[in-house]
Design a protein around this nucleic acid. Structure first.
Lengths: 127, 127
DNA sequence: TTAACTGCAAATCTTTTGCACAATC
DNA sequence: GATTGTGCAAAAGATTTGCAGTTAA
């Protein structure tokens, strides 16, 4: 894979934000510095970066994919109040053991999505 | 909500099949008996039936939603070999306990998707 | 009769793709 | 100079929606 300014900007954009931007979010943000940019290029680069393992894709049913700079194993919480996506680090040993125990299943990978309140909305709801 | 032949046919279609059909699968199947049917009507009715709790929606990232006649709590296995979606009944107490234990999180609902081999493909792979 | 439902087609939204041109190695 | 990447615009796929006509209660 050879260098390109656009790919560099896409990667930097994902790495520099702690939210979980969509392709369009990234496109709009980069566009300010790089007016010629096209959305197709953003998608192509995101797909490449995901394949290379440089960024992660976060899929939540019914909405555009989001992209995540955090590569270590973790899951995502979709906030049912504000729509934000938050990283959640869970101890998954219980889940893995439960899956292992099911010898009748040939499971290769488990994906879980959490729905609830993000930390900001949880704090707001407390008052 | 008032009676309609189309809704009846959509519901019956979901209830009579043990696979997990997409809106389009259902549309094509019903269309044989009811040529006038439109795909929009199928979508509208499926959405209504899901809202009423008569059928369940199964969302797997990157593909069309599927619909499930089985209402009791369970998850889904997407077969990475043949693409079939299979019901999986797991003992989720360990997962729920783990979520409960995380007092810092306000999680309302957990959804998990499993990826691996369906029973048919697993049996085929064994030989 | 009137509110809900339908068919149709157009619109929406997300993502991919074909192609001619440009940039990289 | 060969190949990879880009911009653009069109296409694709899933789903929703506006509207005028139809149907159940």
């Amino acid at each position: 894979m050879r260098y390109s300014r656009q790919r560099e900007l896409v990667l930097r954009q994902v790495q520099n934000r702690c939210d979980h931007p969509t392709a369009d979010d990234i496109y709009l943000a980069i566009r300010e510095d790089c007016p010629g940019l096209s959305l197709g290029t953003v998608y192509r680069n995101l797909n490449g970066l995901v394949e290379m393992g440089r960024v992660r894709r976060v899929s939540i049913p019914g909405m555009a994919d989001r992209f995540d700079r955090t590569l270590s194993e973790h899951d995502h919480l979709y906030c049912t109040r504000c729509g934000k996506v938050e990283d959640v680090f869970l101890d998954k040993t219980a889940i893995n053991e439960m899956i292992e125990a099911r010898k009748d299943l040939a499971i290769e990978h488990v994906s879980l999505n959490l729905y609830g309140l993000c930390s900001a909305c949880r704090d707001a709801a407390r008052s």
